[in-house]
């Protein structure tokens, strides 16, 4: 017996696109805020930033943070409760990651809709970890007095800015890889919008 179910159930698709809006807004406004006091000899060009000036960028950043955090919390709760994390992300072994990475580099790693290879699993778990890191370091920068213990965990306010930047870099790197993969295997895009259909053998 077999049954048909979507590749991506609707809560996942909804949260994915809400997250896309939140992340793009957070990164664009974050770059504008960064430009006001750069940590490195590097600033972001105005055409890729959001908010026009520091006040506008902060307003966007502190508005979108609620979407990012609430949506992210829903995703984590749903991922655990529905078994999505367990089914899609586990098991995750270094050996499998190396095997699949080598296959991918030779463009020999087939894509199966509805199932993640070990490299994908590592990327998704990794970007989730960066997501937690960017929220916690962001809270430390926002409230270095009220959340002093959290700020201390990152080595203080100034160090938390570097951690926040590092986590952003990790997420941007993920997005670059994510978008390249979608461009290489465009059939994965539609299921993230409409759900797609996955036929699987019955248990």
């Amino acid at each position: 017996m077999s049954r048909i179910r979507p590749i991506h159930p609707w809560p996942l698709r909804l949260m994915h696109w809400l997250n896309a809006v939140a992340i793009v807004t957070m990164i664009g406004s974050g770059w504008q805020i960064y430009n006001a006091a750069p940590l490195f000899p590097l600033t972001f060009p105005a055409r890729v930033t959001i908010g026009e000036w520091l006040g506008g960028a902060i307003a966007w950043h502190f508005a979108a943070m609620w979407l990012l955090v609430l949506n992210g919390a829903c995703y984590v709760a749903w991922g655990i409760a529905s078994g999505h994390f367990r089914r899609r992300f586990l098991p995750l072994t270094p050996r499998a990651v190396i095997t699949d990475a080598l296959l991918a580099l030779r463009l020999r790693l087939p894509h199966r809709n509805g199932s993640y290879n070990a490299v994908q699993r590592l990327l998704y778990v990794g970007v989730l970890a960066f997501g937690v890191l960017i929220v916690l370091s962001g809270l430390a920068i926002w409230k270095p007095v009220q959340f002093a213990p959290l700020a201390a965990l990152f080595g203080g306010f100034a160090a938390a800015r570097y951690v926040h930047f590092l986590a952003m870099s990790g997420i941007v790197l993920f997005l670059v890889v994510h978008l390249i993969l979608v461009a290489l295997v465009p059939k994965v895009l539609w299921p993230m919008i409409a759900g797609g259909r996955l036929t699987e053998a019955g248990q």
Binding site: A59, W60, F62, A63, W66, K143, Q146
Partner: peptide, 19 residues
């Protein structure tokens, strides 16, 4: 307008967080 509403909301959250 949306950003203004959110900024007011953040004022309230910060007042609640203030120890």
């Amino acid at each position: 307008r949306v950003l203004r509403v959110m900024s007011r909301w953040n004022d309230r959250v910060q007042e609640a967080l203030f120890d």
